[in-house]
Design a protein around this nucleic acid. Structure first.
Lengths: 248, 248
DNA sequence: TCATAAATAATCAAAAATAATCAAAATTAA
DNA sequence: TTAATTTTGATTATTTTTGATTATTTATGA
């Protein structure tokens, strides 16, 4: 069996099950743990799956670049994403200088944009390409490109951000809680979010209802430092901590 | 059986199965391993399949969500670009810190790269994504993203380049002439090429035969400032001006 | 917190695949 | 036809991949 065929087999199993253990793969592929681990490492490095302790998961949890993965994400909270994206897009005027954070939620925002003269800066490769495709002026920040998310991160990225002062910024998040604020699983991406948000006159966090009362390892901003844009706010207590915009 | 018939048979089998092993081909073609390997090498070199350990896969199978804009350029001189790309890739060692200029020619170079430890910096969005897909460490420079070519340009890009000192750099060009050197139609892209090349210990310009004795509006480097990598040098006089490497 | 179990990374020898070499067979040119 | 050239397949040396072993790291529960 060719290496590429084994890769394909792993990805196929993963697509069906969403998560798989090393042991399951050794049985399915009739090969050793070493080989499975090496394969997972390679696939993780090229951003085609997410390696976790014990096995691997699909990318969908955080960000994603593959189209199938994006499709599954769409199905998760489709109406809400549309509502959030449209609501956020309404806020952008022709005079704005806008930062768009990498991640799937902000990618949906781009769908509702038209070229009204605003200029955009982003750390997401996909985002830059999508904005370009709409004929919108876009800058990308420089730095190391992360495999899984295709987001630009690292010290270069932070330094690159120093050149900009945004009127508005739109961010994704993995968790929101009153005490831990906005949080994300990845330290590098968290650092970029943090720096970018500090350079925005107004910051907006786009979050569907599943993100509330969740905490991820890295807090990148306090709860009061950004306006939350969501579909329908279920937990009203968040209005005590910051502004919340509800779509539709 | 004619060599070309064998080539065709291999490609036909491959088109159906997407991946084949050397052993399968020896049985299907009733020939020796040596011959199959030689055929695969030849087909790989001419870019008609992708040779992997154990056999071969189709080209498209791998990754590549190639864009339409780039796609049109691809077909211009495909075989020669493949030869040039391979030649260029051979020059990169694990210790190198490499700049890859945006453009279709340098995109071919990436096809022949494997992760040998070298680090890459590029101003091409597609190039960054392709390198990522191979699990190779990659940085992107910051700045304005140009619509048609998806290249990063402008003053930000020039400033971003100041952070780097490359051991090797690979560039595309639109024209080469003894007097006007290497030239390109776009001023912004020319400025980035010029700055990036100045920061390379060794610079290489990848050029198919159609580029010689042509002049574009903006000269970005003198003829002697880079080694030319081409398929087959038709106009020998260029050897008087700079080093020329010929593929094959 | 610490000890224990589980998972992973690192290492290395064996196995598999490949590249290099070379003589025989087939093809082409003279 | 013979001589020269190319192609082929066998042999070998080299490289890559694999799986077992060991050391290290991470998670879990007392």
């Amino acid at each position: 069996m060719l290496t590429e065929e084994r890769y394909a087999a792993i990805l196929k199993i993963l697509a069906e099950k969403k998560a798989v253990t090393v042991l399951e793969l050794t049985k399915a592929l009739q090969t050793s743990e070493s080989t499975v681990r090496r394969d997972l490492t390679a696939l993780h490095r090229s951003g085609r799956l997410y390696k976790v302790y014990g096995g691997a998961t699909t990318i969908d949890n955080n960000y994603s670049n593959a189209e199938e993965d994006m499709q599954t994400k769409w199905d998760l909270h489709p109406e809400e994403k549309v509502v959030i994206g449209r609501k956020a897009a309404e806020l952008i005027t022709g005079e704005d200088f806008v930062y768009i954070d990498a991640g799937s939620t902000t990618l949906h925002l781009i769908d509702f944009l038209t070229d009204n003269g605003a200029t955009f800066v982003t750390n997401g490769m996909q985002h830059a390409v999508s904005l370009l495709a709409k004929g919108i002026k876009v800058f990308i920040i420089g730095g190391a490109v992360k495999a899984v998310t295709e987001a630009v991160v690292g010290t270069e990225a932070l330094k690159s951000l120093e050149n900009y002062n945004f009127t508005k910024g739109f961010f994704g998040t993995n968790g929101i809680s009153p005490k831990s604020g906005f949080s994300t699983p990845d330290a590098d991406e968290g650092a970029v979010k943090s720096e970018a948000m500090a350079r925005c006159k107004s910051a907006f966090v786009l979050a569907d209802s599943s993100k509330f009362n969740k905490i991820s390892p890295i807090t990148f901003a306090g709860i009061s430092s950004a306006t939350i844009i969501t579909g329908r706010l279920e937990d009203k207590k968040y209005r005590d901590y910051t502004t919340v915009l509800e779509g539709e």
